[in-house]
């Protein structure tokens, strides 16, 4: 029989920082709640950062995954439109430029994290990060 852990009945949880009320420290040291973050907070923090820069990742495709409660999202990243696929839980929130948090299943995000979310759709432009070239 497959090994059963006491927690196996619950769905895999998201990182704690997406829970409504989580305290987020911006690059300038200011503290904000995760639900209060704005696009400018990410942009300004990346400007201060010596290692990270903001990239835009456009959602090109969203499809179901064999993993329960998961989806595979294909992004075109940056000006070179590099194709990147990520498998995430449907409630995983992404930050859409000018809009805010969005997920494949806003209802689940709200239910599990209390974070209000829009529906992530093809064409949405999400904030992503790349490492600044260090070489």
């Amino acid at each position: 029989p497959p090994p059963a852990s006491p927690l196996s009945a619950t769905c895999p949880s998201l990182p704690p920082y997406f829970m409504k009320g989580s305290i987020i420290q911006l690059a300038d040291g200011k503290l904000k709640r995760v639900e209060d973050l704005k696009t400018e907070d990410f942009i300004q923090s990346a400007e201060i950062s010596s290692e990270l820069k903001i990239d835009s990742s456009t959602v090109e495709r969203i499809e179901g995954s064999q993993t329960p409660n998961s989806a595979i999202i294909q992004f075109a990243v940056g000006e070179h439109k590099a194709q990147v696929s990520v498998e995430v839980l449907v409630e995983y929130p992404f930050f859409v430029f000018g809009q805010g948090w969005s997920s494949c299943s806003p209802d689940r995000t709200t239910q599990l994290l209390e974070l209000s979310c829009a529906k992530l759709s093809v064409g949405d432009v999400c904030i992503s990060l790349t490492l600044k070239n260090s070489k």
């Binding site: 950062s49 992503s128 990060l129």
Partner: peptide, 25 residues
């Protein structure tokens, strides 16, 4: 009510997925 003394503070960049390691051309 007793407030917790230490509230976890998370860095802003933990909220954003690292999708592209670098732009190479």
């Amino acid at each position: 009510n007793v407030e917790p003394r230490s509230v976890p503070v998370f860095p802003w960049h933990s909220l954003v997925p690292f999708l592209a390691p670098s732009q190479s051309d």
